[in-house]
Structure formats: C-alpha cells, structure tokens
C-alpha cells in the first residue's frame, strides 16, 4: 500500500460517506442522480464478487463492505425514504441505465483478462465505473444546480481518480509485474470525464457565476 493508493481510497470513501451522511442529515438528495447512484451500487456488487472467496487483507474486506453498504443505503434512501425521495429531481434524471450497462457488458464479454464469470464481471465493473458519472453530469447540466453537496461529492470523486492514477504510476515503477491494461484504460477514461467537468466547475467558481455546462 502506497500513499497515493491510501489517499485515493480515503477520498473515495469520503465521497460516498459524505453523500450518505448529508442525505441522512438534511433529508434531501436534490441535485443527486439516482441513476448514477444505482450504477455505482452495481459497480461495487459486480466488482466485489471475490469478497468471500479471496481474502486479501482485513483493510480490503472492511472497505468492500463499507462501499457495498453505503452505496446500497444511498439508493435505498433515494427510492424508499419518504422525505428524501420527495427532493429527488425525477423528471430531470432521465438517463437510461440500459445505454451504459449494455455496451459495458458487451465490452466485458470481449475484453477481459480471462473468460470466467468473475473476470467478466470484474471487467464490466471497471467499464461501468468509468461512465457511471454521466447521468450525474447530465442532471447537473439540466438543473444548473451545483450546491455544496453536489460540489463536494464530485470534488472528492475527482480527487480519488487523480490519486489512483498516481498509484498506478508508482506501482508500475516499483512492482516489476504490475500491469493492468483494463484497469488503466478505463480509469483514464473515467478521469477524463471528470477533468471535463472540473474545467467548467473551476471556471464557474473563478468567475463567481453559476455553473453553466455546454449542451
């Protein structure tokens, strides 16, 4: 475990926990895309199929349990909690899961490290994670609503992406056989989507105007 990996895991963890705690506390999920949250729950569920079969470390198992528990809790709040669900921008959050899930599944069937159920699901989870933020970005663009909650959430996710890339570079030079093309390429695509968002986020902050993303 290097410092970049730890920082990446911690910002990732904070992004999910900050979102869950705020939804729990203020009983509102305004500006948050349920589609993106459901996709993340699916990402964790398909990636952590090894949770009971391969023991890596106590840290690893606990983190997986927290990610699974918190992502499904967020979805539960947004769908089932009687106050939270009222604040959900349902009419604006119209992105179809299907358009992201199907291509990722097909790509995972073709591009995987080994053609087994677990490996195909693992590749699928990486492809899906790369694009799962898209419904959130579409919702931001439509509602033009970038409050503190959404801003902090997307900022923490962006920090997680950046730290993971530093982690891969570090591991590539320090661990002789560390090569994971699928992880790196899908991770890079995901980070580029964030960079695009950050460009507009930073500009709107600098000019002290409301965020205005291009259509």
């Amino acid at each position: 475990m290097n410092i970049f990996r730890l920082a990446g895991d911690m910002t990732h963890l904070m992004s999910v926990l900050v979102l869950l705690l705020k939804i729990h506390t203020i009983k509102s999920c305004a500006g948050i895309s349920l589609k993106t949250q459901e996709l993340y729950a699916l990402v964790f569920a398909t990636r952590y199929l090894d949770i009971f079969t391969d023991f890596i470390s106590v840290y690893n198992t606990i983190m997986k349990l927290i990610f699974l528990g918190s992502s499904f809790s967020i979805v539960w709040y947004m769908r089932r909690h009687k106050l939270v669900r009222r604040s959900y921008d349902k009419e604006q959050d119209t992105f179809r899961h299907f358009f992201l899930v199907l291509p990722c599944l097909l790509l995972a069937l073709v591009m995987n490290e080994k053609f087994t159920f677990k490996e195909v699901m693992w590749a699928f989870s990486l492809y899906l994670e790369a694009v799962a933020i898209l419904p959130q970005l579409v919702l931001l663009q439509r509602t033009k609503n970038i409050d503190n909650l959404t801003g902090q959430y997307v900022f923490l996710l962006g920090a997680y992406r950046a730290f993971y890339i530093f982690n891969w570079i570090y591991r590539y030079f320090t661990e002789p056989h560390y090569v994971h093309w699928i992880t790196w390429i899908s991770g890079l695509v995901q980070t580029l989507l964030y960079a695009d968002f950050f460009y507009y986020y930073f500009n709107s902050w600098k000019n002290n105007v409301k965020l205005h993303l291009p259509a």
Binding site: I56, N60, M63, E113, K114, E119, H177, Y178, H180
Partner: peptide, 10 residues
C-alpha cells in the same frame, strides 16, 4: 502480470 490474479485494489 496482467493475468487473472488476485485484485488488491478497490
């Protein structure tokens, strides 16, 4: 080495 090894990242 890029094979179907144990994945230690989250």
């Amino acid at each position: 080495s890029g094979g179907a090894d144990v994945k230690d990242e989250l």
